[in-house]
Design a protein around this nucleic acid. Structure first.
Lengths: 229, 229
DNA sequence: AATGTACCAATCATCCTACAACTTTTCGGA
DNA sequence: TCCGAAAAGTTGTAGGATGATTGGTACATT
């Protein structure tokens, strides 16, 4: 019925101001914030108050401070750090499973919504895959493969989905590669997602789902093998 | 290649200690932390240092402080708050889309992994749905329906998936209900997921996917209608 | 030219004390 | 017993002091 009176603490006010300055692009990733002394004057708060605000954002992953050097903007979104912390506490295979679920959805949406630029990016990754396959460059191949999947998720045109997917992929990079190369009979040609790409290009949702499901089935099999070892 | 030297600041050390005390259950949700003076002595740090640590956890959503009263544990996971913040910045329909993707995956996994307790919980929710349908209690029905979906996701036995799903569902409760009741010809009986429940009970992955896909299609249609208004 | 040393200035890290603001408890009086 | 004032307890904010780390400069050494 009654809304609580807005008694935002000074620290919270400073926090949201800094957050806003970062989101709005006034401070970009990599930029150095003014030193504490100046910020104190700008926000008109004491050093303690300012430091508590900055510390909150450092823990959230938006800022990074180095003694003697200064404070820089590290990210524009706190989701990555939080997700990463959760992933560390959680089972690796559970995380991979969720990631595959996002990928499955992305394939369908990408088939519906992809545009020219999306197709170009995907094609570029596929060609990188093929080049790496020709030179038997396994790690190069896997990197290009991950890029392809990212491009596909981007083509789904859902920023929330993309956000989650990328934040779940980057910390898992090495684990994903480990799963992929666990296959004793690793076959480059079979792993190139040419069919999937063409299904998305032709906007065939049905085929896109089919190919992704095949890929997921393969991936799951490899995960299972590792788990049993 | 090279690991960065690990020089954890005092504040960070206190933060992780408190985090650990919460995770380990030493302090449960709702508990009040000892006053700052005591914590200062316990951790052997100054008030400023301690306060910066606490402030970081307050911003992350694990703690809540009230001037004059004390500090209480609010949550054991910071993911919820971070996800919520991201959702506020993001498009509602994008979030709903991701939520449906998780649900689709959950249905398949639930069909494979559900146990007796899972089935009991799902059945309970379904019966609550039916009771609400009989009395034409629309809001009661929708609440029970959401409970059913949550139970299904729980039955997938993937804590990461469940975590994400619940944290994406709770803040969307009202939006989800709004979408559901937007249907002019809302039909209780059609919305009761009896078929889906039995498919999961019979461990028929194929049927489970089918029913969930039907449900998702319906839901999407309603969302589309709202968007076009 | 590359490396090592000494020094300086800027900046963050930590600690301390003091007081304000708010909440909870205590206690005396009606 | 009930009520309200006082007291005690707790977090919020301010300001000052000192220590530690970093980055840069100048200069000598190899």
């Amino acid at each position: 019925m009654f809304k609580k009176a807005n008694r935002m603490s000074l620290v919270e006010q400073v926090v949201s101001q800094i957050e806003h300055l970062i989101e709005s692009g006034h401070w970009s990733v990599g930029d150095r914030l003014p030193p504490e002394m100046e910020l104190m004057k700008e926000f008109d708060v004491s050093r303690n108050t300012l430091r508590e605000a900055i510390r909150a954002l450092v823990h959230a992953g938006l800022l990074e401070t180095k003694q003697g050097s200064g404070t820089i903007v590290k990210s524009t979104s706190a989701l990555g750090v939080a997700l990463h912390r959760q992933m560390e506490k959680s089972n690796l295979y559970e995380t991979l499973e969720v990631r595959l679920a996002l990928e499955r959805e992305a394939a369908q949406l990408a088939a519906l919504r992809r545009n020219k630029e999306d197709l170009q990016e995907m094609q570029k990754s596929i060609e990188a895959c093929k080049r790496a396959a020709n030179t038997k460059d396994l790690y190069g191949f896997l990197s290009a493969d991950i890029e392809f999947h990212k491009a596909m998720v981007k083509a789904a045109h859902n920023s929330m989905l993309q956000n989650l997917y990328e934040h779940m992929t980057d910390p898992l990079r090495s684990s994903i590669k480990r799963v992929m190369i666990s296959d004793k009979h690793f076959d480059y040609t079979r792993e190139i997602h040419d069919d999937l790409f063409h299904a998305i290009k032709q906007q065939s949702v049905k085929d896109a789902i089919g190919y992704v499901n095949d890929y997921i089935k393969e991936f799951r099999k490899k995960v299972k093998q590792i788990q049993e070892e």
